[in-house]
Design a protein around this nucleic acid. Structure first.
Lengths: 203, 203
DNA sequence: GTCTATAGCCGGATAGAC
DNA sequence: GTCTATCCGGCTATAGAC
């Protein structure tokens, strides 16, 4: 499997991107210096400029890489010919697993939602959200319900994301079990909640 | 009503905090300079140091101010003696309204969830989340259901928050109605979803 | 309480040797 | 492809006049 982008992927370049992803996810664009990344990689800051023309190009490349390394998981979320409710369960399970597996990916996405300009939002939509979002909206339509399919789709995504987003808060709320099976627990919960809501078709 | 904190609140100090909140919500801690804030206020950067010892103190004061100016709305979310399902509807409606009204508040909270250390997370819990979270968890318990009350409570919060968080994406998804009544729409949707899920008590 | 001036540091980015 | 050295601008924070 060769490089999926126009630029060739040398080992050093990939190493730089890997550390850049970690740094940008942790501290945001403005909170990371080229010296930070260079130090992580073990090269000088000047050497970075051999691989990327400037900081912004490094950032964009890191974003694309972080998105690309999850494309397999994103595609996997969609492959299924099951009936709607079972497809929902599978989708939620896989989405929760993906979000739990790659914390940096989640943080980068959430930072982009806060920071990104229109162009970068467009990149985010095309490379990350478009396909799975279309799939979950289509699924929401198939679930016979008078709930708005867009709102229902976003609700599913929002519930799973917030479960991770709120993890730091959980340590400070007494009586809160720190379950070891987080992704499965939230997946089961969301599936159960939506399943019950759409199963109730009187009104 | 006097200052609720130890420090007296001069008009200039309040003005500084107001602009600081806007800046920090928009660009994050590292993305804002003291000169930026000073320029907004119309004073020199040096003058800021008469009101706050350093940048971090300004940031913390801005956070506290942003939280404090929403305490009225947060308390309002809890005042109700209605039966559970109606209390849920009211809570969701008020929460959605608060999040929609103060976009800066939401962004600051979401940035803190990404950036904050343990001490600042504790502040966030005590000044923002503790009370309404306890209330919504208690409410989730009252709704007779075998869904986990903590997960159910977080789901409600997550759905409302993500509706706003994902707003920038919505422009890039074709066929998506940009409803003018956003807070009401999401509140109605979440209420309907949860109401149906908990009303279904067979199993 | 605000100013101008500036110290001192750190950041992005470049030059040029190897 | 990586280095050292460096430029230069912006940053936090302080000094001292008004």
């Amino acid at each position: 499997m060769k490089a999926r982008s126009a630029t060739p992927e040398s080992a050093t370049r990939l190493q730089i991107l890997d550390h850049a992803i970690t740094r940008f996810a942790q501290s945001g664009y403005a909170g990371v210096s080229m010296r930070d990344v260079a130090g992580d990689v073990g090269i000088s800051a000047a050497a970075l400029y051999h691989h990327f023309p400037d900081k912004q190009a490094l950032y964009l490349a890191a974003m694309e890489q972080a998105f690309a390394r999850n494309q397999e998981g994103i595609v996997a979320m969609l492959e299924s010919q099951l009936p709607p409710l079972e497809r929902l369960a599978l989708f939620v399970h896989r989405f929760a697993a993906l979000v739990a597996r790659d914390e940096e990916f989640r943080k980068l996405v959430q930072r982009e939602l806060l920071d990104a300009d229109a162009a970068r939002i467009a990149l985010l939509v095309e490379q990350v959200f478009r396909k799975p979002h279309d799939a979950i909206v289509a699924l929401a339509r198939e679930l016979v319900t008078d709930l708005d399919p867009y709102l229902l789709a976003d609700s599913v995504i929002g519930m799973v994301l917030f479960d991770h987003q709120s993890a730091p808060l959980r340590r400070h709320v007494r009586g809160r079990a720190l379950a070891a099976d987080r992704p499965e627990a939230i997946a089961r919960h969301v599936t159960a909640l939506v399943t019950r809501a759409v199963a109730r078709q009187d009104r």
